[in-house]
Design a protein around this nucleic acid. Structure first.
Lengths: 341, 341
DNA sequence: GTGAAAGCGCTAACAG
DNA sequence: CTGTTAGCGCTTTCAC
């Protein structure tokens, strides 16, 4: 805390007015005549006065700050989310309190408490687990504004997010329409309760009357490049005739691509690769990635609109609302119709 | 601000003790007998009490929060820095206030003010401009703990950072030792006052008695993948016989690599590519990038040690100290000795 | 037009 | 052992 900052009192003493007058003048009250205001402003300037927001927060009961909790900012989409949230929030006069849960539910809980103790006006959270949301539901029940960046339609908590189920559905359908029949997917199949992608995958298969085959789903160790490489290695080892694969993220897709390049598997001719999230590195990969676009701008804007409206709501919070943004596909070089041979 | 949270007063009324006793009990003062403490804790629990940090901050004159200002979190190194800073800070009981300057000096200034108004105990800043640091110097002069993540040895402000000059020197020297004579560099040559890399580049040439040639330096539009691609395109168009290139970031190097792959330039045989920062996407590129390592863990730890020691220093701040961490090279597939042909 | 007083939720100093 | 008082820096209400 900047050691000895000037206070209203200091400028009051310097100018001979009372603390009250100074406060009013500095906040531009019409009740203060111009000359007085001028003197006060000048003294404030000289003393390098900056209002103490913590004192202000205490009386106003609002901190103009919003907490953002992400699992891991290293994931490029979350990086972009953090950037977008901070930018939008600062435009609206809010400060961003930032924390990472490292996908650890215990830490997530701790950070939520910490934000609450600091009286953040609201929170945006990308939860570790898409299903176990009791602690967050409870927060909301106590009228604390929270909105999730991941959506469970019946979680009872506000959320705005990409519709991953629809994204996976579209991507798989696209592949199917282009003649692929053996479409693999890298997915943890719900270990973390995040079943959206695999659900969409199955729906697309069903809609096209293609049988689901367990052998085509491989559980990666994570969502990063290395995990994608390893998953592709595992898939190749199974030798189950896959001609296309849906990856959980662009990073994983990049790893898969790398495996293919290094093992003489041509992309997209021998193996079509679909990424998720449409990131910069996917777009500019040696073979540009087809991907499911994550419309970060739209999502963060909606999410922020929502928390702020919750913050400004009188009395009890309104009913929870979940908004799913339907993603578009971005088709580039890593996918192509199944070739005849 | 969570609408109606329990206060010490509420639990005082509920238990019949005074606010003071409750406060002491909850903070584990030895002066309070176990039975009293038990009753109080129980009541606190029931009321779902959480201490109001803003009130606490007001009296204690410390917020246990530190501001982090980055230019642009989208740059993978800065992403990693943000992650590392948040993690380390939370381990030490500090909250991270986060802001982005978007490389805009005006915004940077504004964010610094905002943090100061909120009485962040200190700040970590990655400034837009490595030379124009007056506003920050001034802050420090008023005893505000700041440490920069970019170093100007004679800025008069604490800093801990990677020694980019040494990094560039090492990378260029490595190339030179491996027979390269026409080493290009993508660098803005100091438009933003960030001359470290080009300085190191020139020093290495001088040390090896290789003449500096303007034609080998191309100014990129930025540090991202696309800029790297364009810079490589520009370099190729000049046709000045470059056999190696130093890129300002791994992202730019990835762009350069992409250009080469798409135009039949073999990497590293026809063109050796050196990146900077050693990022995940560089490591796992189709042709793994040689790079100058940015030891984020070490740097953030030192920087945080420093701000915290400044925060805890009594009276005036001690003399500014700048710590430069010398980077190591990571040699992978994108560079090789100049081939004889 | 301007000032005095009270209070936000908490801690610290001092009594008892 | 526990309670009372004062005060952190600000805003708000109400007098003058």
């Amino acid at each position: 805390m900047g050691k000895s900052a000037a206070r209203l009192k200091d400028i009051a003493e310097k100018t001979g007015f009372s603390v009250n007058t100074v406060s009013l003048a500095l906040r531009g009250s019409p009740r203060i005549p111009d000359e007085t205001r001028r003197q006060i402003s000048e003294a404030a300037e000289q003393l390098n006065y900056l209002p103490n927001q913590v004192a202000k927060s205490l009386v106003l009961k609002e901190t103009k700050s919003i907490g953002l909790i992400l699992t891991d900012i290293t994931n490029p989409v979350l990086t972009a989310v953090a950037q977008a949230v901070e930018l939008e929030l600062s435009k609206r006069g809010y400060l961003t309190l930032f924390a990472t849960s490292n996908s650890n539910p215990e830490l997530e809980r701790k950070m939520i408490e910490s934000f609450r103790a600091r009286r953040a006006d609201g929170m945006l959270v990308f939860p570790c687990n898409h299903r176990k949301l009791d602690h967050i539901r409870q927060l909301r029940a106590r009228n604390y504004p929270v909105v999730l960046l991941v959506g469970d339609p019946d979680a009872g908590v506000d959320a705005v997010c990409m519709d991953e189920r629809a994204g996976a559905f579209k991507a798989v359908s696209h592949l199917l329409e282009n003649g692929h029949r053996r479409v693999a997917i890298f997915d943890g199949s719900g270990q973390e309760g995040n079943r959206e992608k695999i659900d969409g995958y199955k729906m697309a298969l069903a809609a096209a009357d293609v049988a689901f085959d367990d052998a085509l789903v491989v559980a990666p160790n994570g969502h990063d490049v290395r995990s994608g490489y390893q998953a592709m290695e595992a898939l190749a080892a199974r030798d189950v005739g896959a001609t296309a694969v849906i990856c959980p993220t662009d990073s994983a897709a990049l790893g898969a691509l790398r495996y293919c390049v290094r093992h003489g598997i041509r992309v997209p001719q021998d193996m079509a690769i679909f990424g998720f999230d449409n990131t910069e590195f996917g777009e500019h990969a040696v073979t540009a990635l087809s991907s499911v676009n994550y419309d970060i701008g739209a999502i963060t804007k909606l999410a922020i609109d929502r928390v702020i409206s919750l913050i400004n709501s009188e009395g009890d919070l309104p009913q929870a609302e979940v908004t799913q943004v339907e993603p578009d596909l971005v088709i580039r070089e890593s996918t192509a119709p199944l070739s005849a041979d």
